Simulated scan of single mutants.
Amino acid sequence: MTATIRPATEADIPALVALEAGFPPEDRFPVRTWRRLLRGRSAAYVAMDGEDVVAAAVYLFREGTKIARLYSLTVAPAQRGKGLARALMAGGEADAAARGCTLARLEVRQSNLPAIHLYERYGFRVLALSQCYYPDGETAVRMEKSIAPEESLNT
């Protein structure tokens, strides 16, 4: 992987919106949501290939809990298989560990088998299924992973 990982900024929003073009329409973040995520208690990261945003991840953090939520992860189709998702998750988990989190959780569409397999290879395990989770009625697979500090910093 030759991409650089860095925190996302508001200047990245047009590229972030474009990156999600492959998502189902109801799963895409509008500009307003990206602005809120970048200003809130979340942490957003982008992978840069030169001047281009080629992947992104968003983690949500809540005060009073030790659980980080991987809220969104996307990699441009031409960039898949290069370790970008793993690098973004490792960075997010290191940040989460530094904030005192010990677990990462996520939801993924049950039909998104490539993503489910990626998360399983990265150490997530299935917790439960959430029926009718998505606006179109699709079931979500809820997954969890331990993010002990020593694991997060050495991946």
Rank of each mutant, 00 (worst) to 15 (best):
M1L: 10
M1A: 15
T2M: 08
T2Q: 12
A3T: 09
R6D: 10
R6G: 04
R6Y: 08
A8P: 04
D12C: 04
D12R: 07
I13Q: 01
P14C: 15
L16R: 06
L16C: 10
L16T: 10
L16Q: 09
V17A: 08
E20W: 01
E20Q: 11
A21F: 00
A21H: 03
G22D: 09
G22A: 11
G22Q: 05
P24V: 00
E26A: 09
D27F: 02
P30C: 03
T33K: 02
R36G: 07
L37W: 06
L37Y: 06
L38R: 06
L38W: 00
R39I: 00
Y45E: 08
V46E: 13
V46D: 08
V46F: 05
V46Q: 11
D49Y: 03
D49N: 09
D52G: 01
V54G: 08
A56G: 10
A56W: 05
A56E: 12
A57D: 02
Y59K: 04
Y59N: 12
L60F: 04
F61V: 03
F61C: 04
F61E: 03
E63Q: 10
T65A: 08
A68T: 05
A68K: 08
A68P: 04
A68W: 07
L70N: 12
L70G: 08
T74Q: 06
P77H: 14
A78S: 11
A78F: 09
A78I: 07
R80F: 15
A85K: 11
A85L: 12
L88T: 13
L88C: 11
G92I: 13
E93G: 11
A96L: 14
A98C: 04
C101N: 15
C101E: 01
T102M: 01
A104K: 13
A104Y: 11
R105Q: 15
E107Q: 07
V108N: 07
S111I: 14
A115L: 09
I116E: 14
H117L: 04
H117D: 15
Y119N: 02
G123E: 14
G123I: 11
F124E: 13
A128R: 13
S130T: 15
S130P: 01
S130R: 15
C132V: 13
C132M: 13
Y133Q: 10
Y133A: 15
Y134G: 06
Y134F: 09
P135I: 02
D136V: 02
G137K: 12
T139P: 01
A140N: 12
V141Y: 09
K145A: 03
S146N: 05
S146Q: 05
I147A: 09
I147H: 13
A148S: 07
A148P: 01
E151S: 07
E151W: 01
E151P: 00
N154D: 06
T155M: 05
